[in-house]
Design a protein around this nucleic acid. Structure first.
Lengths: 353, 353
DNA sequence: CTGAAAGCGCTTACAG
DNA sequence: CTGAAAGCGCTTACAG
């Protein structure tokens, strides 16, 4: 059961009657080796099941790992996007001793052009790996094309894009989040009462994961209570001033018994409901922000569905390090937990604020 | 913003007018250095903010990391405990190239003496780090005393022990799991109906986390529905033959509307309920085992609460590696997600079977 | 096309 | 108490 000693380049060289330089050329396809020698060495490498010592390799090559990060700018000091950034900073600081550095770029959440500009700046810094939240699907896809052209590996967080060649995705299974929200809301609201799904600032190809949450929500009801009446309404974030009035009008018009807010903007809804005559509306939203927690505590919001955003940032950096420095295999899809926060278990999440 | 170049031992030595050997002695408290020199070098190290290059250090010292693992033996081929073992094996295999090996010991879940015997064998293998599931609290504590005497760092998984000097705990917040189960069950059962908490093979100091789940369950009701009638019943696993009869008798006697099974043994209960005249009993249990999934699919079990046991095993090994080889800081308490599996989102967990 | 040598930053005997 | 040298396994010029 004891594993045999490590095979070194030196062992391959000796067995092949060549120098370690030649073995190295074969290992890294650096050319300048005769076909015959190459074949022979390759066979020996295979036979002896050679595995490079990555500590030695990294040490000798003195490679530094420069990462590029591209995320939405937080909308406030305790907005959602401060959290992944915190995780990223923590990971980078830990890995500093291994030569890891990061350039963090943030873009305006309402401005695809700003995304493109920051993406260009990121590229010109020539990073060895990238962490990306593909907030604008179309623009992100174009950016990814450039990354692939430059053979720059990248990790997606928060929202996934299918089959784009990402090293990994780290984030929620948003469809499942929607399903769970539906199930929870169905338990809180009597059959026959209306449900409302609220999107903030959704656009067709933007923030795909909010759409996935909605789809999961509908899918659950279609399967379990096909009769359930559900409506979806969208509110542009830019109109935030008129937002309260619109919301109030919506409540009067629809008289929903339950509301599912697909994003962290649930506090906007809760504020209106709490100040209105419409008591007893059951509300589920996303993300553990201070503003949301307030309404969870007061009982206006019943559930917050969370996803450990700090951890997502942290793990994204770790994944790049593990792949690029340690050469370890990376799991492609990494679903963050879908955590259910209620007034009762809130205190166990104080770590998040 | 560019961080300055790395400070090396050589730089310290030059500045202190000593050799790198002396610096090394100071760094590792190897003695044989005059007090005066020691102070001076220490000051320079501080001043220059020296951080050792751990790749070089690990490479030069050629340390191998031998881990000892001590877990309950799985009760069946797809029993719960196969899963952490799988995660551990995966991590060890990935880290093999860095000299990581593991001796895995398993003990009989009903036999504390077997635990002690295996613990002794583990110790005699002189591991550099240990992964332990402290299944028998008393025996585990004694074992930990030996580990601490030998300065062997250890990671706890599955169940935590407070303040035992563990490098990390990786597992559920069991109290919170109980609270969430209570909240879910309360939404499924009408007020005034009876609830039952079922333990399997609990003993006072065994499996502390099952007790924590129960406490969380009671705490939630005390806070939210103090009138709720709840009873706890315990079933010894050794009596598994007579188990069905006892369960049936229990159902007849108590006529519960909801049952919370604190462990993965929920399939035992579901089988009895499904074969009985007592339809409509709402059941919540733990862990994604094939036997449990069957009853989730058939609708007899409403929710399974899960905790990613494979990931726990994997992370435990990674934590030891990160600490002992990479010298990275380790978060002491790492709560696994409390995942809610229903018939509807089950397919997203196929990865677990 | 191939080999020998220096070096990555640290550790570990060994000599004095 | 201190220093100089060899070595960890690999990479990187350089010489031929």
């Amino acid at each position: 059961m004891e594993s045999s000693k490590q095979i070194r380049i030196k062992d391959i060289a000796r067995k092949g009657n060549v120098s370690i330089g030649t073995v190295d050329r074969v290992l890294h396809n650096r050319g300048e080796v005769s076909g015959e020698t190459r074949e022979r060495i390759l066979r020996i490498i295979e036979e002896m099941d050679y595995r490079p010592n990555l500590l030695a390799s990294t040490l000798a090559s003195r490679k530094k790992l420069k990462m590029g990060v591209l995320l939405p700018a937080p909308l406030s000091t305790d907005g959602y996007w401060t959290q992944p950034v915190e995780g990223i900073r923590k990971a980078v600081s830990e890995l500093h001793q291994y030569g890891v550095t990061a350039d963090i770029f943030t873009f305006d959440q309402s401005d695809p052009d700003d995304f493109n500009g920051k993406a260009a700046r990121l590229l010109s810094a020539a990073p060895d790996g990238v962490v990306l939240a593909p907030f604008f699907a179309r623009e992100a896809t174009a950016f990814i094309t450039s990354l692939k052209a430059g053979h720059i590996p990248f990790v997606l967080i928060d929202s996934n894009l299918p089959e784009q060649g990402q090293l990994a995705y780290i984030g929620q299974n948003s469809f499942q989040c929607g399903q769970l929200s539906a199930r929870l809301l169905s338990m809180l609201v009597r059959a026959g009462q209306k449900m409302l799904v609220l999107h903030f600032a959704r656009e067709t190809d933007h923030q795909n994961h909010l759409l996935q949450r909605e789809l999961g929500f509908y899918a659950w009801f279609r399967e379990n209570y096909p009769e359930q009446e559900i409506k979806t309404r969208e509110m542009a974030l830019s109109e935030q001033a008129s937002c309260e009035a619109r919301l109030l009008a919506l409540l009067e018009e629809e008289e929903p018994a339950g509301i599912f807010v697909t994003s962290s903007k649930v506090h906007l809804v809760a504020r209106v409901v709490e100040g209105s005559a419409f008591k007893g509306i059951r509300i589920i939203g996303n993300d553990l922000l201070r503003e949301n927690v307030r309404f969870l505590r007061s009982g206006t919001v019943d559930f917050l569905i969370c996803q450990r955003p700090m951890e997502q940032g942290f793990e994204a950096v770790q994944a790049l390090f593990r792949s690029l420095v340690l050469k370890l295999p990376i799991t492609e899809v990494n679903y963050s937990p879908i955590e259910i926060i209620t007034r009762e278990n809130l205190d166990y999440y104080k770590e998040f604020k």
